[in-house]
Computed example of a mutant assay.
Amino acid sequence: MPASFQGPVMSVHPDSPIPIETQRWVRPGVAADAPVLDAWLMARAPLAVPEARGRRLALDALLEQGGHGICLIAGIDAVRALLPVVLVHSLSTGGRMAMVTEWWPPESGDADDWLAECCIVLAEWCRAHGIRHAMLAPGLIADAARAPAGFVRGAEGLWRGNLVPTAKHLG
Rank of each mutant, 00 (worst) to 15 (best):
Met1Trp: 10
Pro2Val: 08
Ala3Cys: 02
Phe5Thr: 03
Gln6Arg: 15
Gln6Lys: 15
Pro8Val: 05
Ser11Ile: 02
Val12Phe: 03
His13Arg: 09
Pro14Trp: 04
Asp15Gly: 12
Ser16His: 10
Ser16Phe: 02
Ile18His: 04
Ile20Asn: 07
Ile20Pro: 00
Gln23Met: 06
Gln23His: 15
Arg24Leu: 13
Val26Met: 11
Val26His: 12
Gly29Ile: 02
Gly29Lys: 04
Ala31Lys: 09
Ala31Leu: 15
Asp33Tyr: 03
Ala34Glu: 14
Ala34His: 04
Asp38Ala: 14
Asp38Gly: 11
Leu41Tyr: 09
Ala43Lys: 13
Arg44Val: 00
Pro46Phe: 06
Leu47Ala: 11
Ala48Thr: 07
Val49Cys: 00
Pro50Cys: 01
Pro50Glu: 06
Pro50Asn: 03
Glu51Asn: 09
Ala52Pro: 02
Leu57His: 07
Asp60Thr: 01
Ala61His: 02
Leu62Ala: 03
Leu63Asn: 01
Leu63Ala: 01
Gln65Glu: 12
Gly66Ile: 01
Gly66Leu: 01
His68Leu: 08
His68Lys: 13
Ile70Leu: 14
Ile70Ser: 00
Ile73Val: 14
Ile73Tyr: 01
Gly75Arg: 02
Val79Pro: 09
Arg80Gln: 15
Ala81Met: 06
Leu82Gly: 04
Leu82Asn: 03
Pro84Ala: 04
Val86Ser: 10
Leu87Ala: 04
Val88Cys: 05
Val88Trp: 00
Val88Asn: 08
Ser90Val: 01
Leu91Gln: 13
Leu91Glu: 13
Gly94Met: 03
Gly95Glu: 02
Met97Ser: 00
Met97Tyr: 08
Met97Lys: 11
Met99Pro: 00
Val100Gly: 08
Pro106Ala: 03
Ser108Asn: 11
Ser108Met: 11
Gly109Asn: 06
Asp112Met: 07
Asp113Leu: 15
Trp114Asn: 06
Trp114Phe: 12
Trp114Glu: 12
Leu115Cys: 08
Ala116Tyr: 08
Glu117Ile: 04
Cys118Gln: 15
Ile120Val: 15
Ile120Cys: 11
Leu122Pro: 08
Ala123Tyr: 01
Glu124Ala: 10
Trp125Leu: 10
Trp125Asn: 07
His129Thr: 08
His129Glu: 10
Gly130Cys: 05
Gly130Ile: 02
His133Trp: 09
Ala134Val: 02
Met135Cys: 13
Met135Pro: 00
Leu136Phe: 08
Leu136Cys: 05
Ala137His: 13
Gly139Thr: 02
Ile141Leu: 06
Ala142Asp: 12
Ala142Lys: 12
Ala142Pro: 00
Ala142His: 07
Gly150His: 10
Gly154Glu: 02
Glu156Cys: 02
Glu156His: 05
Leu158Ile: 00
Arg160Glu: 14
Gly161Arg: 11
Val164Asp: 14
Val164Phe: 11
Val164Pro: 00
Pro165Asp: 05
Pro165Leu: 05
Thr166Lys: 10
Ala167Lys: 12
Ala167Trp: 07
Ala167Ile: 05
Leu170Ile: 03
Gly171Ser: 07
